[in-house]
Structure formats: structure tokens, C-alpha cells
């Protein structure tokens, strides 16, 4: 067994909350620059210029790239040879979120109850997805998820007869319906398969994949390409002002499913595609 003290976990989560809000990942930078080169609409080009300028200021001056610094979604892969010492894993993660959001002057955007709506004051609790894996490492990924794009997500339990065409229509319609709301250019996270609960998680987890990566299964690599083309043909464009670049990438994650259904979920991510992973 390998001992990992919770103080180390707290420190890593804190740093990831800060880094993600100030520094746009390199793969997203690359896609934004490509978008600026290919966008035809003058208004769209101007928006992309503003976004690139914004993200440059954010990194240089440590100002959050977006005022919605998100609800911290934390993915944790715990190696089964790891022994966590000094306290509770969930508490350690939430302490990291608390410290990061307080010390970094990040916005506190979490209410304690969905209906009674009192702000918790420190952006906790995080939404935590824990998985036990082989090995003796602890892998932590943080995605601070803003409301504008998160609120545009959708999910369906399609019948098997809907097939790949049904899935494509559902995804494209979700993006159409979202329109200008989720701050395009967006990243479209798609979950296909699993169960009602599992498919949403697939869609969320897909957002961790680098935007310039190719899906390991050539069938889905092709589907991602087709969907990206169809989505960019809608014409929504940067910030919905009309244009060629509505999405920077489509990322699909799949899982086996029941004989009666094709679960499909779309989790939309704004252009501030903030996420970072650290392995302890």
C-alpha cells in the first residue's frame, strides 16, 4: 500500500481550481486560433479576437477568464493500492475547493439547496466522481463548470430503431436549441450508452479528452467528424452572431447498454473549456 495524506490531496485540488480558472489549456488555445483563421463572419472574427485577448489577460494578470468560475466537478481515480491517511477524501477535496475559491477571489456560485437557494459562501460542495482503478496512484481532474453552458444539456432514452441517425439528430437539435446561450464556440460532450444516470456522466467525462485528439475507435472518430461538420453548418457561429465556427470539437464517450435503448446525453461546454488533471 502507498500512503497519501489528505493534505496533499487538498493542495492539488486547490491548485487545480486556481489554474483552471486563470489558464486556458493549450489544446483549447490551438482550436481557438484555428477558429479565428477559418471564421468567415466579421462579427464572429471580432468575438474570437476578444476571447483570445481575454484569455491572454486572464493568464497574465490572474483574473478569472470568466466571472462564472463554475461549480467544481472533480473526477478522482483512486488506485486500489492507495491508502488515504489523515482524514476523509471527500472533506479533503472540498477543503481544496474552499481554499482555491477563497484565496483566488473566484466567484462562489453554489447554493446549499436547489429550492431554498442559500449560497454556501465557499463554492462547496464539489460534485465528485470517484472510481477505484488498479495501481498506486491518485489521479485528480477538475472541471469548473459554468452555468450558461451546463444549463443547455439534454438527455434522451432513444429506442434502438432510432439508430445512429437518431443519435445525430438528437445531438444537432440540442446544439440548435442551445443557440447563442452557452457561449459558442462550444465543445460538445456526447455520452452514448450505459443507463439513464450513467450516460450523463459519460457526456461529462468526455470533456476531459484533449480537443485535438482522435477517438480511438475509428467508427466514433468518423461520427465525431460528421457531427462537427453538421453542427458547424447550423450557422450559429461565435456567440450566436452567425458564422462558421459553432463548435470547436465533438467528443464522444460510449458504454455498453440494455437491448431496449440507446441512451444519449449532450453536455455542452463553453469556449472557456477549463479542465486540468494532476496525478499524485
Amino acid at each position: 500500500m502507498r500512503d497519501i495524506n489528505i493534505s496533499e490531496i487538498t493542495g492539488v485540488v486547490k491548485k487545480l481550481c486556481l489554474d483552471t480558472n486563470f489558464v486556458l489549456p493549450e489544446d483549447v488555445w490551438k482550436k481557438l486560433r484555428e477558429a479565428q483563421a477559418t471564421e468567415e463572419s466579421p462579427a464572429g472574427k471580432d468575438v474570437l479576437k476578444q476571447i483570445i485577448e481575454n484569455d491572454t489577460i486572464a493568464e497574465k494578470e490572474k483574473i478569472p477568464m470568466c466571472q462564472d468560475t463554475g461549480l467544481a466537478v472533480v473526477f478522482v481515480e483512486v488506485g486500489q493500492e492507495v491508502h488515504i491517511t489523515g482524514g476523509d477524501l471527500t472533506d479533503a477535496i472540498n477543503q481544496g475547493v474552499r481554499e482555491g475559491y477563497t484565496e483566488g477571489y473566484l466567484r462562489k456560485s453554489v447554493v446549499a439547496d436547489p429550492l431554498r437557494r442559500k449560497n454556501t459562501g465557499d463554492n462547496t460542495p464539489a460534485v465528485i466522481h470517484t472510481e477505484i482503478v488498479s495501481g498506486d496512484k491518485l489521479k485528480i481532474s477538475v472541471i469548473p463548470k459554468g452555468g450558461g453552458s451546463e444549463n443547455m444539456g439534454s438527455l434522451a432514452m432513444l429506442p434502438p430503431s432510432a439508430g445512429v441517425e437518431g443519435v445525430k439528430k438528437f445531438v444537432v437539435d440540442a446544439v440548435k436549441k442551445a443557440g447563442s446561450n452557452p457561449c459558442p464556440p462550444i465543445v460538445v460532450g456526447v455520452g452514448i450508452g450505459g443507463t439513464f444516470d450513467g450516460v450523463a456522466l459519460l457526456a461529462k467525462r468526455s470533456l476531459l479528452r484533449p480537443l485535438d485528439s482522435v477517438h480511438p475507435d475509428s467508427y466514433y472518430a468518423g461520427l465525431e467528424k460528421e457531427l462537427l461538420k453538421e453542427i458547424n453548418n447550423i450557422g450559429i457561429g461565435p456567440q450566436g452572431l452567425g458564422g462558421r465556427v459553432t463548435a470547436l470539437a465533438v467528443l464522444i464517450e460510449t458504454y455498453p447498454c440494455h437491448i431496449t435503448a440507446i441512451p444519449v446525453a449532450v453536455n455542452i461546454q463553453c469556449h472557456a473549456c477549463r479542465r486540468k488533471t494532476f496525478i499524485i
Binding site: Q50, E53, N54, D55, A58, I63, M65, C183, Q239
Partner: peptide
């Protein structure tokens, strides 16, 4: 509309 996700720039 102002540019969503350009909060650092707009703050200036």
C-alpha cells in the same frame, strides 16, 4: 450582447 466568457477583458 457583450461577449460571454470575456469577463477579464470586459472588466478593463
Amino acid at each position: 450582447a457583450a461577449t460571454g466568457g470575456a469577463g477579464a477583458l470586459l472588466s478593463k
